[in-house]
Design a protein around this nucleic acid. Structure first.
Lengths: 143, 143
DNA sequence: TTGCATCTAATAACTCTTCTAATTAGAACT
DNA sequence: AGTTCTAATTAGAAGAGTTATTAGATGCAA
């Protein structure tokens, strides 16, 4: 993934390397804030704006994908291949979900798209309660 | 829908009636800001907080559904039945999409959910470019 | 190494949403 | 109808999240 930085015309700066590294091995889809806080110890001078700039640059280069899975902070996903997400309504945790046949080849399922609408990607989100939250309070309202 | 206000233990105030009316016949999934601006002429004294309070109350009562379809403002959907959404990557327009078998009965498709995760709802989002935007600039980048 | 374009840091500004305190207004109960 | 209780509204400020601006530093190619 670092290699593709250059391919996209992006310079390989220490800040970008750190952000890419932190994101690449992270399955929790961190927010910009979370990335910033995790990287601050090792890069104390890094600015908050740099995190956003870098994430924006990576997203434009299609190396990561921003996800609006719930209101509030945008989450960033190092996996740009088609897949679904399980989102906990209580704690907001996000987990990847393998979804077969979720590519652009399945608009038959959602037939009546608006006239002239061209589909580029199909996302699927499973909303519910994760095991940890259910264990804490099994009887709570769904949300 | 107005009738269900009382069932939910919510008082029938003029502000709530206006918001419910504006939302009920609107297929564009307006944001809180949009609702506020549309209602201001007829209810000049209404506060911004009231819009949020009311939308939150309606959402808790399951009369509307908040949707995080793209980064930025939350959109509110008067249709709480299971259905999908077509979202234009350029202009942000949202349209409803009928989706068969999109209820809670289809987690087989997205099999490997996290252990202990209970699904309450499945959402499907079709991302792409709407006809109007494609007409304006057919050659532009997908996003 | 020099020059230029890009990138970063710092900060301000902006958008969206929530909170607080005081007032007002529904709904229920005489 | 009048009273009371509680919830809802208002206005403003505050908070979170994001984007824009600008000056200065840095990487990269010639």
């Amino acid at each position: 993934m670092l290699a593709r930085l250059g391919d996209a015309g992006l310079k390989r700066t220490p800040q970008r390397v750190a952000i890419v590294r932190e994101l690449a091995g992270d399955l929790t889809h961190p927010t910009a804030q979370e990335l910033f806080e995790r990287l601050r110890p090792s890069m104390p001078t890094m600015s908050f704006a740099t995190v956003y700039n870098t994430l924006d640059a990576l997203a434009r280069a299609r190396l990561i994908a921003p996800r609006a899975l719930s209101p509030g902070a945008t989450r960033f996903d190092p996996n740009v291949r088609p897949h679904g997400h399980a989102v906990c309504d209580r704690c907001g945790a996000v987990a990847d979900v393998a979804v077969q046949a979720d590519g652009e080849a399945t608009p038959e399922l959602g037939s009546d798209l608006p006239r002239g609408f061209t589909v580029h990607a199909v996302e699927r989100v499973f909303r519910g309660v994760c095991g940890a939250c259910a264990a804490v309070d099994p009887g709570a309202r769904p949300s």
